[in-house]
Simulated assay, not measured.
Amino acid sequence: MRWNLEVVPVMVSDVDRAKKFYAEQVGFHVDLDVEVSEQLRIVQLTPPGSGTSIQLKQGDTRLDGLQVVVDDVDAARDELVERGVDVSAVAHFEGGVRREGRGGDWNSFVFFVDPDGNAWVIQERPSRS
């Protein structure tokens, strides 16, 4: 099983200003800019040639979680459970609400928290045909 660290959240005070800075001044590619709900907007940018992206989030200036992308979220969950990690059921987002069960492409996740309260997200990537 290959696990890749691919998305690093970056807390910012103004998402639009940060998006403009990273895209126009730094030269990152804008991969995604989606408003999931009134409280959640996802802006993801990737440095040229990088396998790791940043995700801009409104909030305190701190790293509030890490996201790992895997080929099989069910297998990843099983591995974590076997190792004694208290991990969520597989879930997806629908209308800005987290719901149990698998979603479509890029929309199947499991969640866990480390002993210090650091939140992790494991996301399944679509199969590469």
Rank of each mutant, 00 (worst) to 15 (best):
I122K: 01
T46S: 10
D86C: 09
V43H: 09
F112S: 14
F28L: 13
D33Q: 15
V70M: 03
A91S: 09
R77I: 11
D105A: 05
D60C: 00
L66K: 07
V26G: 08
K20Q: 10
V10N: 10
V87E: 01
G103Q: 08
A89D: 12
K57P: 00
H29Q: 15
A76V: 09
V68L: 06
V85C: 05
L80M: 10
G59A: 05
D33T: 14
E6V: 08
D16H: 02
S127M: 02
V85I: 14
L80S: 04
Q67W: 00
R83F: 03
P47Q: 08
I122W: 00
V34R: 12
Q55N: 12
D60V: 01
S37P: 03
Q44H: 02
L66H: 08
H92Q: 07
D105I: 00
D105R: 01
A75Y: 14
F28M: 15
D78C: 10
E24Q: 15
Q67E: 07
L40I: 03
L45D: 10
V36I: 09
R62W: 00
V85N: 08
D105C: 00
Q67Y: 02
Q25E: 14
Y22H: 14
D31F: 02
L5G: 08
S13R: 12
D114G: 13
S88P: 11
